[in-house]
Amino acid sequence: MSRRSAADRALEESVAQFCEFTAATPKEARNYLTKYKKLDSALNAFYTDPNMFGRRDTGPSTSKLGVLFDQYKEEDGDDIGIDGTIRFCQDLGVDPEDVVLLAIAYELKSPRMGTWEKKGWIDGWKAIGTDNIAGMKTSLLRLRDKLGSDPAYFAKVYGHTFDFARAEGQRSLAIETAIAFWQLLLPTGLQGGALAHIRSRDSDNDQDMDGEEGWKPEYNDWWFEFLTQRGGKGVSKDTWTMFLEFVRTIDSKFEKYDMEAAWPSTIDDFVEFAKEKLASGGA
């Protein structure tokens, strides 16, 4: 009997937490907890499908998102700034330099680092499907996985990152800045499959079936070394954009690179650099 009572008390505590996190009714909370047993699994299922048990879905609350935004907003401004971003990340339990924040920046249409505008915040979180910190934490897990594994989504976040990272009024990214963001994005895409090798520049869905190797993780460091040695004013949007296609299509020995194609000169020069690396054993 005591074991059963302890289980009942644990369930009631989970129901209370579920309701606090989701604004669901106790009956709805019990349905999810009965099916999924653990609180985190039940919460994840709720945010994935709030109508699973016939719940009338009213969607995330604009007013709740507005109140949450105001908690982080600068006192003397209209946007969330650096300080608010740091507090928001602390509440989410995520490092401000975590790659998943780039996905959030894309979803919320953040115009630049450390800045979140109210319209983008509300529209973005409503599209994601949550209006509270618990739901946002769960959404981070889903978006992190999607960023690493979905080539189309990775490309969207990657494209937004250039404008997000660019200093206001500048047309290019400082080399150090570009490298810092590539260091976040490239390993994520390579490990998760979003940057899986493809055979053709013409078809992003033509997955390599003949065993041809593509871009290797160590080539990331070669690229950074090349850019640092080369110097220059920065990384143009054209180079940033085309580099994504280059990584996905180049063979591991750089033999199939077409110097006559419309690649940026920076990538042309890197291919020569990489071939020299390969010839010398990668030293």
Rank of each mutant, 00 (worst) to 15 (best):
E13H: 08
Q17H: 11
C19N: 05
E20C: 06
A24G: 03
T25N: 00
P26H: 04
R30P: 00
N31D: 14
N31C: 15
Y32E: 04
L33N: 06
L33D: 00
T34E: 12
K35G: 05
Y36W: 15
L39T: 03
D40T: 13
S41K: 15
A42I: 09
L43M: 07
A45I: 08
A45H: 09
F46D: 01
F46Q: 07
Y47H: 05
D49G: 09
N51I: 11
R55I: 03
R55S: 08
R56W: 14
D57M: 00
T58P: 09
G59C: 03
T62L: 09
K64G: 01
K64F: 03
L65K: 07
L65V: 06
G66L: 04
V67A: 15
L68M: 15
Q71R: 13
Y72L: 09
K73H: 08
K73R: 13
E74K: 14
E75D: 12
E75M: 11
G77P: 08
I80M: 01
G81M: 11
I86V: 14
C89F: 05
D91V: 04
G93K: 14
V94M: 13
P96E: 03
P96W: 01
D98T: 04
D98Q: 00
V100W: 10
L101V: 06
A103W: 00
Y106L: 10
L108A: 06
L108G: 12
S110H: 11
P111E: 04
R112W: 06
M113K: 07
W116T: 05
E117D: 09
K118V: 11
W121Q: 02
W121K: 02
D123Q: 14
G124R: 01
K126L: 06
I128W: 02
I128S: 06
I128N: 07
I128C: 02
G129K: 05
N132W: 00
M136L: 04
M136K: 05
T138A: 09
S139W: 04
L140E: 06
L140D: 09
R144D: 00
K146H: 10
K146D: 10
K146P: 08
K146F: 06
L147I: 01
